[in-house]
């Protein structure tokens, strides 16, 4: 952009410098530093000097043989998947209902406000609140279950591995399905309405419209939801920590809680915690790259195909006009 001989290009750089510098210092450098620490002997409270190990992958070897880490590697995906599947299914169902032309649901605004609410409340508070709601021997859930005659004596939820996992997954589901629902509703409203008109004229049923038009149109948004949920779910920290400290018997220990315990909870194994972080980093990056690849591949292919068609049409048109001029 050059006007009156003045170039404004430098302002593009100047305005981007704060972001760039802060990112380099506070995000990129810590990532590299973490990766480096993973190859050193950095342990012990208050230490920050280190030397590299003779066998560089020793910390990785120790971590990959650590029973707690392996247990956490198992727990984390179980807890994430158990929360994510109901989250996406219920969000889809609600999005379909709220955008339905046949049902015309009233009071949607109020429902959305209430259903979305848990999403903005502090996860730590919610986790500790649920710990109290499911307490033993006196707690609202135990009292309610006894009042309804479901159980005769109070149940010790915190001591049951599957109940603890289930409650943590439920908290994740409960905090996030409203968010996913709103995102999906926006996605459905963004679909070209003439597609639905055409389908209705052709006599398609509601399920047919949902599975043949709505769902395929939402593919990008669904994959985006999947990737962000995966990245968040595999770093799950606040809820398992505050609900049950990873217990009982490490059955709700997630990899992030494990990393925190290794480095900051009286042990100060900075090097091993770094190695564990890098393993998780790698897993998350590989998983999301695979998902992105699947997504990009198809969209790009479709786009390229359309472009090719357009170009061919353009060429035909040009040829036709050229002929017209000749004649």
């Amino acid at each position: 952009m050059r006007k009156n001989g003045v170039s404004y290009a430098k302002w593009g750089y100047i305005f981007s410098i704060p972001f760039f510098v802060v990112f380099l210092v506070f995000s990129l450098y810590p990532i590299i530093y973490t990766a480096v620490i993973g190859f050193t002997d950095l342990q012990g409270a208050g230490r920050s000097s280190f030397s590299f190990l003779d066998k560089p992958f020793d910390n990785y070897r120790i971590i990959l043989a650590n029973a707690s880490f392996l247990q956490a590697m198992k727990n984390t995906p179980i807890i994430w998947i158990a929360g994510f599947i109901p989250q996406i299914l219920l969000a889809l169902l609600l999005a379909a209902w709220f955008t339905s032309r046949r049902f015309k649901i009233h009071g949607q605004a109020a429902f959305k406000v209430l259903i979305y609410m848990p999403n903005i409340i502090t996860a730590a508070t919610i986790a500790f609140l649920f710990r109290n709601l499911f307490g033993y021997p006196k707690s609202p859930v135990n009292d309610l279950a006894m009042m309804l005659g479901i159980i005769d004596s109070p149940f010790y939820f915190w001591l049951s591995a599957w109940w603890s996992r289930g409650i943590i997954s439920f908290i994740q589901f409960w905090m996030w399905y409203g968010n996913t629902m709103i995102v999906l509703i926006a996605g459905v409203l963004g679909i070209d309405p003439t597609l639905f008109d055409a389908a209705e004229i052709d006599g398609a049923s509601s399920p047919q419209i949902f599975f043949r038009i709505t769902l395929p149109s939402l593919r990008t948004i669904l994959l985006y939801t999947l990737v962000t949920s995966l990245i968040g779910g595999l770093q799950l920290f606040d809820v398992p920590l505050l609900f049950n400290l990873g217990g009982p018997d490490q059955k709700t220990l997630t990899t992030s809680v494990f990393i925190y315990n290794q480095a900051f909870s009286g042990r100060y194994f900075y090097n091993r915690a770094s190695a564990a972080s890098m393993i998780m980093f790698l897993i998350i990056m590989v998983c999301s790259s695979i998902l992105f690849y699947i997504m990009r591949d198809k969209d790009q292919a479709k786009l390229n195909h359309e472009r090719r068609l357009e170009r061919r049409l353009e060429r035909k048109r040009r040829r036709a006009t050229a002929k017209g001029v000749d004649a």
């Binding site: 810590p30 480096v36 950095l42 980093f281």
Partner: peptide, 24 residues
């Protein structure tokens, strides 16, 4: 290139660099 860079770092799991961040 700068915009592509922002898109690339959009989804970096930052929580996993906590050890380096803390030490720094």
């Amino acid at each position: 290139p700068f915009f592509t860079f922002i898109m690339a770092v959009l989804m970096i799991p930052t929580q996993l660099s906590i050890i380096g961040f803390f030490q720094f």
